[in-house]
């Protein structure tokens, strides 16, 4: 469980990037973090990961203030899954996943047998064990994203932060990745993903957090939170939120598109 209390952050003398953020996330919760560019999504994640320490307020994981933890101890509790990982050198999938075991590796020469088993298990968990010996650069974008998730699983942290995990993926890969993520949530992981897609937030996550100008402007179930007004507030766009399949799916449609249709008719 992660709890953020009254978190504020600002670069020297500029306006606040984060302004009094408070929320908490429980086991088995999947939170989508929605907000326009520059709303403070990445900064919030960086604070939670211990990458930025000059914030005010408190971040607690299982009741422990993360300021008191060493980077290694924090890495065992919270893991980060980037949008993409570009390495100049081409590692194998297994090597990439093994990198996640670094905080657990006690031997001086890095991961040993136990860590290798953990990496294999993480790959198995996501159904991509067969990719083990392939080189990371030569697999599809969706597979690469799954490998990065496996790396976070091998890190054995219970809280996973994902930075727009589906941003660079085609539709098929997006679904593949999100199904994988959903499975993890059922297994008790706490997952927070940042996204630019309100429909996706509705479809897959069970909590929605909307961030604008460093403040939380909405937090709750996507069904209640995703409204015409919220879309307008976040993105400055007039949109209609429609439901499909008896409310199981919700889509936001820009009004400008609808008006064009009317003109054509």
């Amino acid at each position: 469980m992660i709890e953020v209390r009254n978190l504020s952050f600002q670069y020297s003398r500029e306006t606040k990037v984060l302004d009094g953020i408070s929320f908490s996330a429980e086991e088995g919760q999947f939170i989508s973090l929605l907000g326009p560019n520059g709303a403070g999504k990445s900064t919030l994640m960086k604070c939670m990961l211990g990458l930025m320490r000059s914030y005010s307020g408190e971040i607690l994981i299982d009741g422990i203030n993360i300021r008191t933890l060493t980077p290694r101890a924090l890495a065992k509790k919270i893991a980060y899954i980037p949008q993409s990982a570009d390495s100049v050198f081409n590692y194998t999938v297994e090597e990439v996943v093994l990198m996640g075991t670094t905080p657990h590796a006690s031997g001086i020469l890095g991961p040993g047998k136990k860590e290798k088993a953990a990496a294999g298990e993480a790959l198995q968990n996501l159904g991509i064990r067969k990719l083990q010996d392939r080189s990371f650069m030569n697999i599809s974008g969706g597979e690469r994203q799954l490998v990065l998730i496996a790396r976070a699983l091998a890190q054995k942290a219970d809280i996973l932060l994902m930075d727009e995990p589906t941003a660079n993926l085609d539709y098929g890969n997006q679904v593949q990745v999100l199904e994988g993520v959903k499975k993890l949530v059922r297994n008790g992981y706490t997952i927070i993903q940042s996204t630019h897609n309100p429909d996706q937030a509705f479809l897959y996550s069970d909590q929605l957090m909307a961030l604008n100008h460093g403040k939380i402007i909405a937090f709750g179930s996507p069904e209640e939170m995703i409204t015409d007004r919220l879309i307008h507030e976040l993105y400055g766009i007039d949109a209609v939120v429609e439901t499909l399949y008896n409310g199981r799916i919700r889509v936001s449609i820009p009004k400008s598109v609808l008006r064009e249709d009317e003109h054509e008719q």
Binding site: K46, L49, G50, L51, T70, P71, R72, A73, L74, A75, K76, I78, A79, Y80, P82, A85, D86, S87, V88, F89, Y91, E95, M99, G100, T102, P103, A105, L109, G110, P111, Q155
Partner: peptide, 17 residues
């Protein structure tokens, strides 16, 4: 071993302790 993690993004490596 840790040198491997320096070939990826620095912030990413730091989140792995």
């Amino acid at each position: 071993w840790k040198m491997n993690l320096l070939t990826i993004d620095d912030e990413e490596a730091r989140t792995m302790g």
